[in-house]
Computed example of a mutant assay.
Amino acid sequence: MDRNLSFDLHVLTARLDRAADRILRAEHQVSYSRFLALTLVGKLGASTQRTLADYLGVTEPSVSRMTAVLAAEGLLDVQPDPDGGRKRRLSLTDKGKELVASVQRGFEDRLAALVAHSGVPYQEYAEHTARLLQALERWEQGKST
């Protein structure tokens, strides 16, 4: 058996990302990268642009531009950090929370259907994915010490 898991995971992730982007642009007029930013702000709570940049794997100037657009669209609230400095605190507006909740419901249903269509049990796939993510986090923490 050929060992191509690293390549297959890359291809799967890239194709899922592109499909998600097409769906979101068509149905919700938002890109997948902007939706991910909104989702991360919602999951992280009131975060900073630096934290968001780290989670997204992009530069702070890129996040600054993205957050400005999301704020202009009424999806994100960007405020100066109460501790001062150049930091900006991020939080979802009610409109942003509604968008994230709506998209997440629809995406989860679509992903469940895709997984079911593949013949892989959804719950089993979800559990294995969670285990892989946990192992990766432990591995990354061990490398940084």
Rank of each mutant, 00 (worst) to 15 (best):
K43M: 10
P80F: 02
D94V: 10
W139L: 15
V63N: 04
V11P: 01
V100I: 03
R3M: 07
R50W: 06
L40C: 03
K95L: 12
D77G: 10
F35L: 15
E137L: 14
L44Y: 05
R88N: 03
L114G: 03
A126F: 13
T67N: 01
A126T: 14
E108S: 13
E127Q: 14
D21H: 11
V63A: 07
T67D: 01
A46N: 03
L38N: 00
L99R: 02
K43E: 14
F7W: 09
L12T: 14
E127L: 13
L9T: 07
D17S: 11
D94L: 06
V11D: 06
V115N: 03
H10F: 15
K95H: 10
I23C: 05
L111G: 05
F107C: 05
R34I: 04
R34S: 10
G142M: 14
E108Q: 11
L133I: 14
P82H: 02
P121T: 09
A113R: 12
L133N: 09
A37S: 13
A14C: 05
R65G: 05
L90H: 02
R65S: 10
E108R: 12
L132D: 08
S118D: 07
D81R: 00
V100E: 01
H128D: 12
S64F: 09
H28V: 05
L12M: 14
D8W: 09
G96C: 00
A101I: 02
V115Y: 03
L40P: 01
K95S: 12
R110A: 15
L114W: 04
M66P: 01
S33K: 09
E137W: 09
L132T: 09
S6T: 09
G84M: 04
D54I: 09
Q29K: 12
A68V: 04
L56K: 00
